[in-house]
Every structure is written in C-alpha cells, then in structure tokens.
Simulated scan of single mutants.
Amino acid sequence: MLNEGKARDQLEDILDDPEYQAYQQDPGFFSELWNKALEAIAKAIEAIFPAVEPTARASSIILIGIIACLIIALVVIVIVLVSRKVKRRKLNERKPLQSMNELEWSYKRHMKEAESLAASGNHSQATRHMFLALLLYFHEKEWLKAMVWKTNWDYYDELRKINKEWADRFYKLAIVFDQVAYGEREVDATEYASFRDEALELIKDKAHES
C-alpha cells in the first residue's frame, strides 16, 4: 500500500509539472499552422462578405479546397514538364535527313517535290519535304549547318542563337515533322496547308534580309 501511495504521489507530481502541462497544451506545428490558416481564411471571408459570419466548418472547407487546387495545379505542371521532356527527347533522337541525297537537294527542289506530292494526295510525304525545304533554306542562309547525323534539336539550338522567334516556330514545325516522318500521325490536306503556310512564312520573312 505504501508503494502504491508513493507511486500515486509521483504520478501526480508528473501531471502537475509545468513542462508536462505545456506539452499537453502544445497543439503541434501542423495543428497550429492549420489553425492559423483557418483564422486567415475566416478574416478574409469577413472582409469580403461583412454580412456573413464565418464558421470553422466553412473555413475548413475553403482551406481544403485551396489545398486540393494546389495539388491539382502541381500535378498538371508535372504532367506538362514530363510531356515537354519526352518531346525534347524525341526531337533529340531523330534525324530529319535520312541520306546525303536529301541534303544535296536545294530547298526549292524540296518545295517543288512537296507540292507535287500534295497534288497527288500524299500529304504526309509533302509535309516531310516542306520541312526539309525550310531546313535547307536556313542552311543556305548559313543560320545552321545541315548534316545527316544532326537532330532537329541540334538545328533548333543553332537557330536559337540567330533568332529565338524563328527557332521557336521551327521547333513547333519540327514536332509535327517528327510525328509524320515516324508514322505517329497522318496529315490531311487542311493540316498540310497550315504546315506549308507556316513554313513559307518563315522562308519569306522580310526580317531575313536585315
């Protein structure tokens, strides 16, 4: 009985200890952060809608909604970044010029071949030759150096040093070219016309003369 009484006294001493009381009352970092966030939201609601009296439940729902939106935004950003990385890898692996023969053609000859193929209904091959016409046009202007072993990423990187706007437009066309050239996409007459017009705009850009 004496030991039990002594143990009870020791337990009471521990429970009455200021450090233990402070520990029990400490809500923890995340709990405190959550409460502060709820208070901030409640004040914001009160400031925006003075007639509405914010409740803890309403503040909690809004805070959860904000957190959910942030998580969704983060997921979307990650997906976009991964998608861009995949596209860049593809652009960095594939070579637009398949033979020296294609390199020896002038850009005007590739343009003529593109129009001939488009007239016969082969819009995918027409797209390919129109892109090569653009590439060799830049080559003839000495804004990049066309080589059989180079990838479209190499060309984009070279062109970016000359003019970033042209490089960005070239990049978009290169993505379509890769999809068409490697059988990932079929191009119809309307899509080819859009691709051709964009390529011709780059070729005929008056800024090239300055």
Rank of each mutant, 00 (worst) to 15 (best):
N101L: 14
T127R: 05
W153A: 01
F138I: 04
R196M: 01
N163G: 03
I77Q: 07
A181Q: 04
L117E: 09
L97A: 05
S124Q: 12
W105D: 07
F170M: 07
D178K: 00
E113M: 09
E158W: 07
W153D: 00
R84G: 14
R88P: 11
V78H: 13
W143K: 00
V86W: 14
Q98S: 08
A114S: 15
V80D: 13
E191D: 14
V75C: 05
A174S: 10
V82Q: 01
W143R: 01
Y137F: 13
D168R: 07
V187T: 11
F131S: 02
E186M: 07
S99H: 12
M147G: 05
K90M: 07
V187F: 14
E186G: 02
R88A: 04
K164C: 06
E140R: 03
N122K: 07
D168L: 15
I162A: 06
W105G: 01
L74T: 06
R196W: 10
I203W: 04
L202V: 13
R160I: 08
F170E: 03
E113D: 14
Y137T: 04
G121S: 13
L136A: 04
A189D: 13
Q125G: 11
Y171A: 02
R84Y: 12
L202W: 15
R169Y: 11
I162Y: 15
F195R: 03
L117M: 13
N163L: 13
I77V: 06
A133E: 05
Q179A: 04
P96I: 03
E104S: 08
V80S: 04
K108M: 09
H139A: 10
S99I: 15
I77L: 09
I162R: 11
M111I: 02
E191N: 06
Y155K: 03
D154I: 13
L117I: 12
V86T: 02
F131P: 08
A181R: 06
D205E: 09
H110C: 05
V187N: 05
K87M: 07
V78D: 10
E102M: 10
V187R: 05
K206D: 08
R196H: 06
Q179R: 03
R109C: 02
A189M: 13
E184Y: 07
K204F: 11
V148T: 13
E186V: 10
K150S: 09
R94H: 09
L132C: 06
K95S: 00
L136S: 02
T151L: 09
V78M: 12
D188T: 05
E165L: 11
E142D: 11
Y137R: 00
V148D: 11
L136M: 15
